[in-house]
Design a protein around this nucleic acid. Structure first.
Lengths: 245, 245
DNA sequence: ATAATTCTGTTTGTCTGACAACTGGAATTA
DNA sequence: TAATTCCAGTTGTCAGACAAACAGAATTAT
């Protein structure tokens, strides 16, 4: 049973903390592309940690292409558009606008995945997808107690669709986004799932997607998926307790 | 002037090399989710480097959520779907199927971005976009000598569209993909751009996108963008010298 | 005999100091 | 004046040490 206890705040690793700090300085414009970072020695004294820790932190940012280092010279903030990874910072869940933008991107990708799956799916995949839809139905029938199960089944439903598309990148991308959203907005999503007046309504959205897949109609699948995720985004953002600016 | 000299292969950083090695072991299934990694001490002797180097490498993978470490116990491969970043490994450009999948994902996202931009764009943005289209036209008129400029203008054209969408995540995502594709397939793309018989044809594809934006017609913009990127993907994959399996 | 506790070795996390490789510019020399 | 050499500074790597946390064995108490 989850929800009884909040996860204790484990002492995070120092390098992650420092990487986040530097990354934030770049995002907020305190460090602009081309700017030179303080030396590792300087950073280690500023943060009050050993240089090895600073090195690990800087190494993370180098790996993402956020900064570039030249031996004997220093480390510099890279030009934008040189990133080698797509990553969502937790700060994005603090502002409504950023959140909506993220969910908008996800909606489009997820709709594409459904459209692909509509024509590409094999029989066993459809069976799997249908099973998750039944899971959701059962969870809704069971009422608010099974809200968590409902959410898990929903995530599995759309993950299965992504897998049925036959494109591994959709699976990876969707899984990544889903994980981030879940990690940051789980509690809000649970509240939404518990709002029983929505149960049947939302279920119909999923069912429409499934029917479109069964009919191998890509455009219907895309439209149905888009409809659900657009509404879900609205429900989430409406209920999320975040700043409007 | 680019293209005269190839960039010398600088000795890569050890941590990146090791991170890549471990990551590959996971991708190929030599290390499965739940498996325990060798100890840092063991890895340092196996790779013949200091533990600090191994630590940096492992730290990168931890940051991506590929592995999780417990002090006093060891480091373990995470379950799939726990990644906190979306990253494209260079290996993806070695197999035609993976490449097509990647380009398919990009096509969908880019098409969505265009659809959004069609309704969201402001006047100055449209002007910027049009300027890049003219750049491309000029480059095509100048012939094969300006192939590189053509490519740069094309990338800038679609980046500008993403910016006009008003959604920062589209900008980030598209920039990341574009960079990876460019880095790995630049030479192929140049050859394509130099194939003069395509010049006018391709230019018409871009122009169609621009016209749809000007007309503020989202579905037309989406369709035109999709058409271009699907054809571009085909041209790229046809010419790319990669394995079919 | 069983359950609780303590001890111990292992592993990751952090610290410290050192040296190597490399760079840009200053000081020196031709 | 121009070329060369030298030097302080910075990142990259190395080596060793200790702290923190954990799993399981050994010990003790019930």
């Amino acid at each position: 049973m989850t929800g009884l206890f909040d996860r204790i705040d484990r002492p995070r690793r120092l390098p992650d903390e420092i990487a986040r700090s530097i990354s934030q300085a770049i995002d907020t414009g305190q460090l602009k592309p081309g700017d030179r970072l303080p030396t590792e020695h300087s950073l280690s004294t500023q943060f009050g940690v050993a240089r090895t820790v600073v090195r690990e932190a800087v190494s993370l940012l180098k790996y993402d292409g956020v900064i570039e280092a030249k031996r004997g010279v220093g480390a510099f903030v890279s030009e934008v558009g040189n990133r080698s990874a797509f990553r969502i910072s937790p700060a994005c869940f603090e502002k409504r606008q950023r959140l909506m933008q993220l969910l908008q991107l996800r909606t489009g990708v997820q709709a594409d995945a459904s459209a692909l799956a509509a024509t590409a799916h094999k029989k066993p995949a459809l069976k799997r997808i249908g099973a998750f839809l039944q899971d959701m139905t059962a969870a809704v029938d069971a009422g608010t107690a099974e809200a968590e199960r409902h959410l898990d089944a929903e995530a599995a439903f759309y993950r299965a669709i992504a897998e049925a598309s036959g494109n591994d990148y959709y699976v990876e991308f969707i899984a990544m986004i889903e994980r981030q959203v879940d990690e940051n907005l789980r509690s809000v999503a649970v509240k939404n799932a518990m709002a029983s007046e929505w149960g049947a309504k939302v279920l119909a959205e999923h069912a429409a997607v499934f029917e479109a897949l069964k009919a191998r109609d890509p455009e219907a699948a895309r439209a149905a998926t888009r409809t659900h995720f657009e509404r879900a985004a609205k429900r989430l953002a409406d209920r999320a307790d975040i700043a409007d600016v």
